[in-house]
Design a protein around this nucleic acid. Sequence first.
RNA 1: GCUCCGGUGGUGUAGCCCGGAUAAGCAUAGUGGCCUUUCGAGCCACUGAUCGCGGGUUCAAAUCCCGCCCGGAGCACCA
Length: 518
Amino acid sequence: MNEQVSLLRAEFPDTIAEAPKVEAEKKLPLLPGAERYSKIVTRFSPNPDCVLHLGSARAIILSHDYARKYGGKFLLRFEDTDPRLKKASLVFYDLIKKDLDWLGCRWDEEYIQSDRISTYYEVVEKLIKSNGAYVCTCDPSTFRGYLSSSIPCPCRNLAIEEQMNRWRMMLGEGYREGQAIVRVKTDLGHPNPAVRDWPALRIIDTTKHPHPRVGSKYRVWPLYNFATGIDDHFMGITHIIRGKEHITNTVRQMYMYKHLGWEYPVAIHYGRLKIEGAVLSKSKIVQGVRDGLYEGFDDPRLATFLALRRRGVLPDSIRKLIYDVGIKPVDVTISWQNLYSYNRQMVDKIASRYFAIVDNIELWIQGAKDHMKAVLPKHPEDKARGNRELTVSWIDGVVKVLVSRSDMKLLLSNPIVRLMGLMNIGNVKPEDGHLRAIFKGFAVHEARAARAPLIHWLPVRDLVKIFLLMPTGERLKGLAEKSLADEPVDSLVQLERIGFGRIDGKQDNEIVVYFTSR
RNA sequence: GCUCCGGUGGUGUAGCCCGGAUAAGCAUAGUGGCCUUUCGAGCCACUGAUCGCGGGUUCAAAUCCCGCCCGGAGCACCA
């Protein structure tokens, strides 16, 4: 068995889930009402009108992980029943699945509501025949009038045959868009007017607004509560984990369940998850991308999963964050620091170290010998990873290195400063366009004894250009040691004293690094 | 306005349902120290909430009750 695992790991490193997840899973609180079911079934049901972002993380991770924890099933269901206002786009069906894969939330079954229209038609007929629904032809504003005074509209109590007749007219060409709607009967005296006789199916002119998948095949489309309620029942969902904006929807749907003699699943509602400063509105994201305000759905300024992945955030960091936040109905505004902290704990172990400088200044060192070599480990705790070597030589009788301009103050105010892995220097003075310093020995312990700051540096030769993309969208040009070029695309690295990043690509002798965090 | 829900240190969370054990645990951020050829990780210490406000019940309340204030969600032929 172990042999097989190690073989698998060697061949397909991505197929094996790693340990941190197990540790995090311990913190998942018990699922309410789990004992009532022999098998837990959860679902994630996005509208494919945008890519997924951090705001969906609670629904996805909790639904998936609870299903796994209890040995149940996790379903993916695309809710694309609005060809007009919240119209789906074909690309998003695919991108959403990629997001889920990346998050490690593999689904057991997949459904698309636009494939299930006939099911909804069957149920609505059953519902009409059992006097649980009716076809309303009232003008919306007149209907609202009846509703607010708890008066049944003239359509509500028509005979069932007449209702069926109207329903067939809806399906045919008997009514135009907006002229008829199916409503589910509830309690007209319900304290919340929003619950009273809610709309279940409406007509959409799909010749004008074709559905991206099924075109103009259907003109009667179910609304959210109807489609979701039916699917949750037929798919055997035991636990619905969704945002608290759906609380009244739960109340609405329970009326339908009662009409049909179904048992409503356990519904858990969580609050909105925001992250400071980030735009988490799907319409704004889509609009921003379309207008060119963002580079794409993976623009580092966005909190989409695509962007987080590109920036080097690991899915398990998001998972840990979600576990930490829990399932309360209150809205939470997470700080990026929190995410970064979880991420660092994992990335620190895997990221190799390199020197890089964004804004450099030359430092000329007198008294140092020619041909020096600094040997630094790629990872301080994992020596097996090997070393990187930086060499410096005399140029016009001095050793020239590059240091970060941001270290200037530190260089000028300390009697001794250590260039990591190379030597100690002192007497730093600014000169026209560069800094000048004097060699002060090699010994680390001397630097430590003098409480000398340690700074990173670069040789003036053997460098690669880097292009650093910051989370703010800012683009910084810089230089890094040559060995950074050996890092494969997609690997996570630490640019020492700058922060963590992900190698995004290499082009024109330049390495593109997406900055993750300090 | 109506119908719901919630308010614990900068941020997030535990505890409250079944009131008492340290007048509040943890994480993160902040500060200091140790360690260390990174401003990372690790270790240690410190800072920081009288638990939204006021009243009540009780020997005892963050935990129960009432009022108030504040915040959020819903009130679409959207999901």
